[in-house]
Design a protein around this nucleic acid. Sequence first.
DNA 1: AATTATTAATTAAACGTTTGTTTAATATTA
DNA 2: TAATATTAAACAAACGTTTAATTAATAATT
Lengths: 208, 208
Amino acid sequence: MQVTDKKTHIINHAVELFAEKGFEGASIRDLAARAGVNVAMVNYYFGSKEKLFEAMVEDRASYTRGLLDEIASNPGYSDLEKIELIIDSYIGKLFTNRKFHRVLHQEMMLSQRESLQDAIVEILYPNHIIIKNVLDHGMKKGAFRKVDAPMVIATIIGSINQVLLSRKLCNKMMNKESEYVPYDDARFSKRLGDHLKQLVSAHLLPRS
Amino acid sequence: MQVTDKKTHIINHAVELFAEKGFEGASIRDLAARAGVNVAMVNYYFGSKEKLFEAMVEDRASYTRGLLDEIASNPGYSDLEKIELIIDSYIGKLFTNRKFHRVLHQEMMLSQRESLQDAIVEILYPNHIIIKNVLDHGMKKGAFRKVDAPMVIATIIGSINQVLLSRKLCNKMMNKESEYVPYDDARFSKRLGDHLKQLVSAHLLPRS
DNA sequence: AATTATTAATTAAACGTTTGTTTAATATTA
DNA sequence: TAATATTAAACAAACGTTTAATTAATAATT
């Protein structure tokens, strides 16, 4: 196995472990056992637990980029269509990358490793800007009513995060049995997307 | 100082510490130093770190109860008025109790101490039910359009949680300087409340 | 192509700290 | 005097990390 592959292999298990136990709760020994490598290899490759975490963030940070930007810059869509496409695309992104996204959330809530917090903000912020630009453009052109754009963004992303926060709470709210995994069910993604699109449309579109 | 007072005193500092560092990241020695008591006192009073955590949850769990229920059961309000009052009331609640609420969020995201997760769900769920009943009643009476009630709840609570998640991210989104503390600013609470009320009204009210 | 020299990868064991917790002695209160 | 509260010290376990020895792979030299 190549060096890069081995690093990636460790990082993949690190995402799982950090998502389950948090940074402090995850031990190098546990990680090594899961990844099937010697404990010393983690420090050999990454230097320290903290640097491993940073390497993991850097490796996975790209998951947010690209797709939203393409949608927003595509001249073939109306502003409302862009918002709707962004909603669906963002749901897909967060659902598939939910473990890493969970790690980012954990780290953002804690006031340790503050420099990492700034890095995480820089990862998430571009997505907000993309949505903001579409909202601002729509309002300027009169396609949208005058709304509190940052709050609309908080609502879109916050709604998705809320169902991602806890599978147990989500299932209880949605009246699903406790073993159900909503994030793997395309019907649930569609349900969330439909709700958000209807909600945001009613909010943004001028009254007839 | 009375025994109960001393316990409460330790719990108060525990909320702060757990909110800052998470369960695993918080040490008994750090807690004892902050609370100004001997390290052994924590185990003397609570038995263990884990039992201290549970005692803290039990002590603070009541923060969610009461207010929302009063609003929902008050016959003097229309269904929309109830929703609007619940939104403002819930924002106030979460903002003032944000540190404990942050601890609950952290714990809910991790897959350790699963029994505690169930307990936390039981703490938060009643609030959801209160909102759900109002929504269902309004839909049944024709005051509201047919909407996805659980998703509407996820949106209301998720939006508030999103701005509570990270002060840094929130300030960046809202174009505030990084030292600003939005949760202590009544204007920010009002801004969030106004947004949510406008959003939910547009979503719930039938088109003219 | 075979052999040697060099570097990289891997391992088990140990290191020093920190952790939650307990103990045994002392002080305080009832 | 008896129960409770408080303390400093010690305990064992787990932690991240380092070491020193060994194996594997690569490069250089004959």
